[in-house]
Write a protein that binds this DNA or RNA. Sequence first.
RNA 1: GUGGGUAUAGUCAAGUGGUUAAGACACAUGGUUGUGGUCCAUGCAUGCGUGGGUUCGAGUCCCACUACCCACC
Length: 373
Amino acid sequence: MAGAISFELLQKDAGGKARRGRLTTPHGMIETPVFMPVGTAATVKAVKPEDVRELGAQIILANTYHLFLRPGHEVVRKAGGLHKFMNWSGPILTDSGGFQVFSLSSINNITEEGVMFASHIDGSRRLLSPEKSIEVQNALGADIIMAFDECVPYPAGREYAAASAARTTRWLARCKAAHLDTDRQALFGIMQGGMYGDLRAESAAQIAALDLPGYAIGGLSVGEPKDVMYGILDDCADLLPQEKPRYLMGVGSPDALFEAVARGVDMFDCVLPTREARHGRAATSLGSVNLRNAAYAEDFSALDPACDCYTCRHYSRSYLRHLIMSKEILGATLVSIHNLAFLCGLMAKMRAAIEEGAFEVLKREFFARYYDG
RNA sequence: GUGGGUAUAGUCAAGUGGUUAAGACACAUGGUUGUGGUCCAUGCAUGCGUGGGUUCGAGUCCCACUACCCACC
């Protein structure tokens, strides 16, 4: 079967697990490893789609949960799909709503059927199930859609993690059965299993057996210590199929991106760069900068001297701090542009380094400058 | 000019003679990982317009001064 997407493994890092790949989708190619900016409500907050493209983003993520509740997936369908609705012609991935049902809605009742929850917008009771999530994602029309899963919280007991992972796998089979238009949209399965290595292996084997076009690692970066996350990731490269893309959900701090790419992960998404930008924190080549700090009030230099993004080419730290402190909309826009450009640029550097067999060198140099400089 | 009122942190204020002067905003410093444009944590008045007085004890009562507000001339 042809399928909506194809993944080509171009190169593996000499001596390491880092991979250089290429994902072909109905809306264009994606060079991996890749960072996907998050556009929850069919918009990367504060940034116009053409600017998202210009800053180097190859694919964006949108949320089933949010669009299901508002404006409603039928509205998006009538608009001609998400790409047209939001004026983004590149690839899109939609999250299934599984995570948000647990993290955002208040009252929820989990059954084998699905999850009953109260909308965070108006409190109305809604049901999201594997079939419903696929129906909504079909209407949204993203290139890659995600399985409806339960993200096991941290910490979680072994028994709960095992039962939850097993249910997520059963839900995945239902998602696959409900998803018919496989030539237009690729369905990714999600590995769970909490922080238990053997449960992870079991989950990986079961979802791999369904022969899906890609696989995600879920349930990480949920509050566990970083070395625990890296420990789980150590095994993921061997647990998941080599020839399929691997997506680590919710990860986006620079150190975690390096560590995960080093362990063979290809795709990432995270709210961190845009959320932090709205609150005045920027990632730069020399480390993190909190623009709210009084020290930057009269700092007329560029946010990051080594960055050539629109924001760094035209504005000073002093001005950006003024915008953030005044809660001016432009502040969120400019810092978001920079933070996204920084992360997308970082991934581009990783791709080039893998091609040159210099990934470990880049990683070492980055850590020295970003965290110790 | 006459009468009345009000002065407490950068701002708005609580405070009715008795420990260490509420709270909010602002400000300062952290935090935020499949996004509720949020939310959270910590810090921030040796002092209550100024000067005197009463009292064991005064932001609180008394007197004078100063500033501002309102009304009348």
